[in-house]
């Protein structure tokens, strides 16, 4: 596992520098408007890009013949994704606190609760995208993610059209402490590891 994480980190810092730069730009913009993009961008693009680069260089073919188990190959991508979200969290909070301390922009009300929600959404999106990509490969997986996001958008739109349902959902969510959002999302993310592993096995054994 350590070897796989090391490899992914090397690849992030050599081939995905552009992604890191965009992440940095989003997080330095004062105020909370661009913070959700930092997390979503990190969550979905970092892991998906790493898997795509593995497929492009055919590292994934070689890795199956090296002393790594399928679980390690799958779990390492999750861990790299989680590390990306932690990096986004540290960077965003640190920079926004610096802006608040230096008077550039004050922290908005509910800043930390919003961050908890963004982390939770990022974890869920990452888990879904990684599960789909491991099962179908990057090219097909990416298309399916687009379809899934459109479907989710449609459902959310339909719910939003019914103001009562939306308000019930918001009330239910507000009863929970914000810190529980990322914890629940992290639990969901961990729970999808065996599903991704199974999907990857099915794809490899074809």
């Amino acid at each position: 596992m350590k070897a796989l994480l090391r490899k992914d980190i090397y690849v992030v810092f050599t081939q995905l520098r552009g992604l890191l730069l965009v992440m940095l730009i989003f997080s330095v913009i004062p105020g909370g408007t661009f913070i959700p993009f930092t997390f979503l961008y990190t969550a979905v693009l970092s892991t998906a890009s790493l898997i795509a680069l593995d497929e492009q260089s055919r590292w994934d073919d070689l890795a199956l013949m090296l002393p790594y188990s399928r679980r390690q190959l799958v779990a390492s991508k999750y861990v790299t994704g989680w590390l990306g979200i932690v990096a986004a969290l540290v960077m965003t909070v640190a920079i926004q606190c610096i802006w608040a301390a230096t008077g550039v922009a004050a922290l908005e009300e509910g800043f930390f609760a919003a961050i908890c929600l963004y982390i939770a959404i990022a974890l869920v999106l990452q888990a879904v995208s990684v599960t789909v990509i491991f099962r179908f490969g990057y090219v097909w997986g990416r298309m399916m993610i687009v379809i899934a996001v459109a479907a989710i958008g449609g459902v959310v739109g339909a719910v939003a059209a019914n103001g009562k349902t939306l308000s019930m959902a918001a009330t239910a969510l507000s009863r929970l402490h914000p810190a529980t959002y990322p914890l629940l999302a992290a639990a969901l993310s961990v729970a999808t590891i065996p599903i991704s592993e199974h999907g990857y096995k099915v794809r490899c054994e074809k």
């Binding site: 090397y10 690849v11 055919r58 590292w59 013949m65």
Partner: peptide
């Protein structure tokens, strides 16, 4: 998985990340 520790593999291409 453990046995593969005793096996060296070379495929038809290097299959290493090109940026390394």
């Amino acid at each position: 998985t453990k046995t593969k520790d005793d096996i060296g593999v070379v495929l038809d291409e290097a299959h290493f990340p090109p940026s390394l």
